[in-house]
């Protein structure tokens, strides 16, 4: 092996770590808040990407998972006074359990039906957050006290960053480990074809449950970090718009790509902040960006960068990279028609 390559790797990582640690030196309170949001959305984006990008399950429940995680954190920390190292894992685990239950419909229905039912679930959760006043304090929301570790209080955005950054990096590391394992490869196979997966001895139901549970775990942890970042958990935060942000992070960043989730989170957290002053114009520009990127880069920014050789290809399984077919494919949902398979290539 090339000696310089061995020397280089820790150097790059060390430099990167130093740069990340030094970020608060360059920011003021507000920009640091935005940076913190980026770390939160990286976790959320990775969570949805596991389910949507890797496992191919088109579910819309991630804003709800985030909300559940945020509320659990808020309740545990401010009402029971529990420390963050209990709250964050608790938020993740409870949400993961709920997420696993959400996998039940995914076993019976495909594509848009799953999207609709999870979407309905997400909206239902917002309604629960508003109407279960005894627990959630309704539309007034719950305040979250600043986390502390052995007397050190992460008060203020700059200090909080040093809690968020390790969490975010840990989650990223966890995701990359899981996705490169047997289970991660199973996700991809299920996405490509459930029949092939079954033929290869993969328990499809169990794998889908794991994908949902895992995605929800990331959603819950992301929600917990979000709660600490914003300091006040409100039901309206977890509605349709939140969902749009999550999907945009995954699709624009790049489906089935961890780098994509990071790029997407960076973009979708910072861009709207720049456009903050023009309400309607912000909407128009945001919408236009969504449409244009999705049309011209259907594989997302990470996909485009990979194509131009700027980003390395993320390989889980060799040969799984899909190319767009220039073929007259009949509609995707042709499973309803009993005859006619479409154009076949001989």
């Amino acid at each position: 092996m090339d000696r310089t390559a061995i020397m280089k790797k820790p150097l790059i990582y060390g430099g990167l770590a130093a740069a990340l640690l030094a970020v608060p030196l360059l920011t003021n309170g507000y920009t640091q808040y935005v940076v913190n949001l980026v770390t939160v959305y990286v976790v959320l984006g990775v969570g949805l990407n596991i389910l949507l990008g890797y496992a191919g399950q088109f579910a819309f429940a991630n804003a709800a998972f985030m909300g559940i995680g945020a509320y659990i954190t808020a309740i545990l920390s401010s009402q029971l006074g529990l420390p963050f190292w209990v709250c964050i894992p608790a938020a993740g685990v409870v949400t993961a359990l709920i997420g696993t239950a959400c996998a039940v419909p995914a076993m019976r229905m495909a594509s848009i039906y799953l999207a609709l039912v999870t979407f309905a679930f997400a909206e239902l959760m917002v309604w629960v957050f508003i109407n279960w006043k005894g627990v959630t304090n309704g539309s007034n929301g719950i305040g979250v006290s600043a986390p502390d570790l052995f007397g050190y209080v992460f008060r203020g955005d700059q200090r909080l960053y040093y809690l968020l950054l390790p969490c975010c990096l840990t989650m990223l590391w966890l995701a990359s480990r899981i996705l490169k394992s047997y289970i991660g490869r199973s996700f991809v196979i299920i996405r490509e074809s459930e029949i092939v997966a079954r033929c290869n001895g993969i328990d499809v139901s169990r794998t889908k449950m794991i994908a949902f549970g895992l995605s929800a775990f990331f959603g819950g942890v992301g929600g917990a970090l979000f709660a600490y970042t914003v300091g006040l958990v409100l039901p309206q935060s977890f509605g349709l718009f939140q969902l749009v942000i999550h999907i945009a992070i995954v699709v624009l960043g790049g489906m089935a790509s961890l780098a994509g989730a990071i790029i997407g989170a960076l973009l979708l957290t910072t861009l709207p902040e720049f456009l903050r002053d023009f309400q309607s114009l912000q909407e128009v520009m945001f919408g236009t960006a969504l449409v244009i990127v999705a049309i011209f880069m259907p594989r997302g920014i990470a996909g485009a960068l990979t194509r131009f050789g700027i980003l390395p290809r993320e390989m889980l399984v060799r040969g799984i990279v899909r190319e767009r077919r220039p073929v007259a494919t009949p509609g995707r949902d042709q499973d309803l028609e009993p005859i006619g398979v479409g154009v076949t290539h001989d």
Binding site: P326, V327, A328, V343, T344, H345, D346
Partner: peptide, 18 residues
């Protein structure tokens, strides 16, 4: 034989593939 491009030829003539 299989994979010789027969169906592709037909689909190309019919204007179904570019």
């Amino acid at each position: 034989g299989n994979g010789a491009g027969k169906t592709t030829t037909m689909n190309a003539i019919a204007g179904l593939i570019p």
